[in-house]
Amino acid sequence: MTENPSELHPPFPVLSRREALQVTAGAVALAALPLQPVTAASSPAAAMNETALTITVNGRAHTLRVDPRQSILDVLRETLDLTGTKKGCNQGACGACTILVDGRRIVSCLTLASMHDGARIETIEGLETDGALHPLQEAFVEHEGLQCGFCTPGQIMSGLGCIAEGHAGSPEEIPFWMSGNICRCGAYPGIVAAVADIGGRT
């Protein structure tokens, strides 16, 4: 009987058991190496597309070059090291990243920094004066408007916006106008009391 040529010369290399184990071990070792993701900041293409941005944050002017895809939140936290503004859901749903831009409250995670060249930005770090807390910060402490504190910077900045907009006239009105700020600890009574307290003084 004539032998099948494909049996004498298989179309793929035949590995011994030892060689197969060596290949498998090498693949496992390669998979275990840490990945080095190409971030927007490190990408050569991103560097070529950077745009100039001049903003005033808490009274201090900054001239930066930013990726046009960067949010104000990321510029504040990663470039200016102002980490008081928190990254919560990163989808504009929790309000932890609320800041004031030209006096208006916004969720900074959904706002492109490049769209606000020349803007005046206020964050939680800019509220104290000569080491003294802002009256709304003091009211949050007095009325126990916080527990874990993660949402507190956004709550306070939103509260300031709420007061400036004239929507802090009563404890019944405040929850509606601050409904975009979520407190997972449930400190809402204290938050409302703090905002109502300062709103009643202005």
Rank of each mutant, 00 (worst) to 15 (best):
E3S: 00
T85C: 07
L127A: 12
L100D: 04
G199A: 10
G118P: 02
D67E: 10
I55P: 02
A20D: 00
W177E: 10
L73H: 01
E78W: 12
L160P: 07
L110W: 01
M1C: 05
P135Y: 01
A139G: 04
A40F: 14
A46V: 08
G186T: 05
H116M: 07
L82N: 02
A193G: 09
I174A: 11
R18D: 15
G118W: 10
E19Q: 15
A46L: 03
N49V: 14
P189Q: 02
T202K: 15
I163G: 01
A29Y: 00
T123M: 11
C183A: 13
F150N: 06
Q91G: 08
S158A: 12
K87E: 15
H134S: 11
V66S: 14
P189G: 12
P68N: 08
S170V: 01
H116G: 04
R60T: 02
I198G: 01
P153Q: 04
D81P: 07
S43C: 14
P11L: 11
P11G: 13
I72H: 03
S42Y: 00
T24M: 10
L110Q: 01
E128C: 11
H116W: 09
L35E: 08
I156L: 05
A132L: 03
I72P: 04
A47P: 04
S158K: 10
A46I: 07
T129M: 07
A40P: 00
E172D: 15
R184H: 03
A29I: 02
C148F: 07
C162W: 12
D74G: 10
V107S: 13
S158Q: 10
P135V: 09
W177L: 06
A40L: 14
V14G: 00
E78Q: 15
S71D: 06
H116P: 04
I182T: 11
G169T: 06
T98G: 02
V57W: 05
C109I: 08
G118T: 00
E122P: 07
R201Q: 15
L160W: 11
Q36S: 14
L136S: 04
A187F: 07
P68A: 06
A193F: 13
E3T: 00
S170A: 09
G118R: 08
T98S: 10
G88E: 02
L76A: 08
R69D: 11
E172S: 15
C89M: 02
E122L: 09
G166Y: 14
G186R: 00
P153K: 03
Q155S: 08
N181V: 02
T63R: 14
E19Y: 07
V66D: 14
D130P: 08
G95S: 09
S71E: 02
I174Q: 06
L15Q: 06
I99G: 02
F176H: 10
Q155D: 01
M1Y: 00
P10M: 06
T63V: 10
I163R: 12
A196V: 12
P175Y: 06
G159A: 04
S42M: 05
N90E: 15
K86E: 01
E3D: 09
V192N: 06
V38A: 13
A20C: 04
Q155N: 06
T123P: 08
H9S: 04
H134Y: 05
V28P: 02
E144L: 09
D197H: 15
G59P: 05
A96K: 02
T83E: 11
